Computed example of a mutant assay.
Amino acid sequence: MRHTAAKALAAVAFTAALSTVATVPAMADPAALPAAKDIVGVGSDTTQALFTQFSTDYNATLPATDTTTPRLYSWDATGTSPITPKSGGSTIARPNGSGAGISALNATNNLTLDFARSSRAAQSTDPASDDFVAFAKDAVTWSAPTGGLAPANLTTANLVDIYTCVKTDWSQLGGGNGAIKAYLPQSGSGTRSFFLQAIGNVTPGACVVSGPEENEGTDSRLTDPGAVFPYSVGHYVGQLNGHTTSTDNRGSLTLRNVNGVAPLTPTNTLSPAFAGGSYGRVLFNVLRDGDYTATTTQGTALRAIFGPTGWICGPTGRADIISYGFLPLPGAGCGAIIH
């Protein structure tokens, strides 16, 4: 079941795919407590809205009279805490971010959680028994508020200087005169860890402030003219496509270029050229290998949802991926297990 994900991105017919997706934004915790048999996940902010749509569309394929097949549910990264993910399960602190979701998955069993949404790849500290199942492509760039001090483009070296506090004024980088206000998402964020790795495994300097929720431009700190903040390009495109809430939207932030390469196409989709570079990343769902390979009702359901021939890799799942701003993985890439 272990495969190597294909590097190339499939050409996507965006308009045709978008027409198959529900037009009402789907962003919320489960409306009712999931049953003990259901497939339930937590974790990444980057893919939480997409997974609520997955839940809506996948569950719609199951007849109301079907009381045997597990449904799919996903809890948002933020909200009231603690949570009880499903009936009969343990009550846990709500996991906010990829790392927190993976930790919660490994601290519980399938009576409480079945998967973790992850916008980061497997790390050496993750248990070997965790299966990182790939399903889409994303990229991370930097953002700044409209009308602020930042230039349109920064190099990787510039970003290193900003996040190690070597450069502290935008005039040093071709921008306006004023202090650079460098922000990072909350601890445990997959976007945070990926961004720091992409710019050279940087340890943030003392001038860097952590805390704004990832991929949300509504934090008042990010309206500062000097602000700079990493952002998921796919999530931003999903927001442009109308998948927003009062907090989960881009606010005044705009995405900026890295090394002269634009993260967006002229039609405001994730650029395959940008996603194919060093700032591109694969998105995953993390499952316990024992659960995923089990010859049980739950194991069958996990493979039917997440596997290479599963629902997420099928037509409606791919259409949802596109609508929410990401790029589907081609061929055997979707559903591949990568460590």
Rank of each mutant, 00 (worst) to 15 (best):
residue 92 I to L: 08
residue 330 P to L: 01
residue 97 G to N: 07
residue 140 V to W: 13
residue 15 T to F: 15
residue 88 G to C: 12
residue 75 W to L: 11
residue 128 A to H: 04
residue 158 N to L: 09
residue 310 G to N: 10
residue 178 G to M: 02
residue 299 G to I: 00
residue 91 T to G: 08
residue 271 S to E: 09
residue 32 A to S: 12
residue 178 G to F: 11
residue 265 T to W: 14
residue 268 N to K: 12
residue 73 Y to T: 02
residue 137 K to V: 10
residue 18 L to W: 10
residue 259 N to F: 01
residue 273 A to K: 04
residue 37 K to E: 15
residue 95 P to L: 06
residue 158 N to T: 08
residue 157 A to P: 15
residue 194 F to C: 11
residue 198 A to V: 01
residue 276 G to Y: 01
residue 328 P to L: 04
residue 183 Y to N: 14
residue 56 T to C: 05
residue 170 W to A: 09
residue 225 P to S: 05
residue 46 T to V: 14
residue 269 T to G: 09
residue 191 T to H: 06
residue 294 A to N: 03
residue 241 N to F: 00
residue 28 A to Y: 10
residue 159 L to M: 10
residue 319 A to P: 04
residue 73 Y to G: 03
residue 155 T to Q: 15
residue 293 T to A: 10
residue 280 G to T: 07
residue 234 G to H: 01
residue 68 T to R: 12
residue 164 T to W: 08
residue 136 A to R: 10
residue 223 T to C: 10
residue 4 T to E: 12
residue 307 G to S: 11
residue 35 A to V: 08
residue 277 G to V: 13
residue 333 G to D: 09
residue 156 T to Y: 07
residue 50 L to N: 12
residue 220 S to G: 07
residue 154 L to D: 06
residue 320 D to K: 04
residue 138 D to I: 02
residue 8 A to S: 04
residue 40 V to E: 00
residue 160 V to T: 12
residue 138 D to R: 02
residue 229 F to R: 02
residue 44 S to A: 05
residue 279 Y to H: 13
residue 217 G to M: 06
residue 100 A to I: 10
residue 339 H to A: 15
residue 159 L to S: 07
residue 150 A to D: 14
residue 121 A to T: 08
residue 57 D to L: 07
residue 285 N to F: 15
residue 88 G to A: 14
residue 84 T to P: 03
residue 164 T to R: 10
residue 289 D to I: 08
residue 80 T to G: 11
residue 301 A to M: 01
residue 302 L to F: 05
residue 10 A to N: 04
residue 283 L to D: 07
residue 158 N to P: 07
residue 157 A to M: 12
residue 312 I to T: 02
residue 216 E to Q: 07
residue 6 A to R: 11
residue 325 G to Y: 00
residue 61 T to F: 11
residue 221 R to P: 14
residue 284 F to E: 14
residue 12 V to L: 06
residue 69 T to K: 03
residue 284 F to P: 13
residue 169 D to Q: 13
residue 80 T to D: 13
residue 11 A to T: 09
residue 103 S to G: 14
residue 161 D to W: 01
residue 189 S to V: 03
residue 163 Y to T: 01
residue 287 L to F: 15
residue 70 P to Y: 00
residue 17 A to F: 00
residue 301 A to H: 00
residue 81 S to F: 09
residue 96 N to P: 01
residue 47 T to V: 11
residue 55 S to Y: 03
residue 309 T to C: 05
residue 337 I to N: 07
residue 16 A to D: 14
residue 106 N to T: 12
residue 95 P to H: 09
residue 121 A to E: 15
residue 116 A to D: 06
residue 339 H to R: 12
residue 108 T to D: 14
residue 110 N to P: 02
residue 323 S to L: 14
residue 93 A to P: 00
residue 292 Y to W: 14
residue 114 D to M: 04
residue 208 V to L: 04
residue 310 G to S: 03
residue 124 S to T: 08
residue 75 W to Q: 15
residue 66 D to A: 13
residue 282 V to G: 03
residue 89 G to L: 05
residue 57 D to F: 05
residue 147 G to Q: 13
residue 76 D to A: 00
residue 94 R to Q: 03
residue 262 A to G: 08
